[in-house]
């Protein structure tokens, strides 16, 4: 029970002080950012979420980014709507859109929604710059954060619990 209650704290510390590479941290941030920007409740978010959970990117950074960028997403909605409107109503592509939309499951993606399309384009557009900007930052900051956090007794306890859990000590 105690271990379960400590889960969120442990998860946060792990996000910052794991042995993941800065690349994994940066990819987690990028995925989290895109998920955060998108309106929820559609297949697009479900697929991106599955990718986040299923790949070896940093989950903690990804989830934190999703939470933070959700607020940014709301602020960016008017711009995303205009962007999505321009892209979705672009006449030469309407045929392609129509064929794509008629494919099974595509309708569940909500990609015909101006905000979803706009935020996805925005997220895709920002993905590479965000990766490029965050990677050196994580490279510089990650070793320092790991070494400073590990100095704390609490961190060691939390990591001990994590190891214990992996070895089956919580049973």
């Amino acid at each position: 029970m105690f271990v379960w209650l400590l889960g969120p704290v442990r998860f946060t510390v792990k996000a910052l002080a794991t042995h993941d590479s800065p690349r994994q941290l940066a990819l987690g941030l990028v995925l989290g950012m895109v998920i955060g920007l998108l309106p929820k409740g559609n297949l697009t978010v479900l697929i991106l979420g599955s990718v986040l959970f299923a790949t070896r990117v940093n989950l903690g950074i990804g989830l934190a980014a999703a939470a933070v960028f959700s607020w940014f997403g709301l602020a960016l909605d008017p711009f995303a709507h205009k962007l999505g409107w321009i892209v979705l109503t672009y006449q030469p592509l309407r045929g392609i859109y129509a064929r794509l939309y008629d494919l099974p499951l595509v309708a569940w993606s909500d990609l015909n929604n101006t905000v979803v399309a706009g935020q996805l384009i925005l997220g895709a557009y920002l993905a590479y710059p965000a990766y490029c900007i965050s990677l050196p930052i994580f490279k510089w900051i990650h070793p320092r954060v790991v070494s400073s956090i590990r100095k704390y007794r609490m961190t060691r306890i939390l990591f001990g619990i994590d190891l214990g859990m992996r070895w089956g000590l919580n049973r």
Binding site: L88, N112, T114, V115
Partner: peptide, 10 residues
């Protein structure tokens, strides 16, 4: 959040 665009008659 946004509006839905209908691409085709289908």
């Amino acid at each position: 959040r946004g509006s839905d665009i209908l691409f085709s008659r289908s």
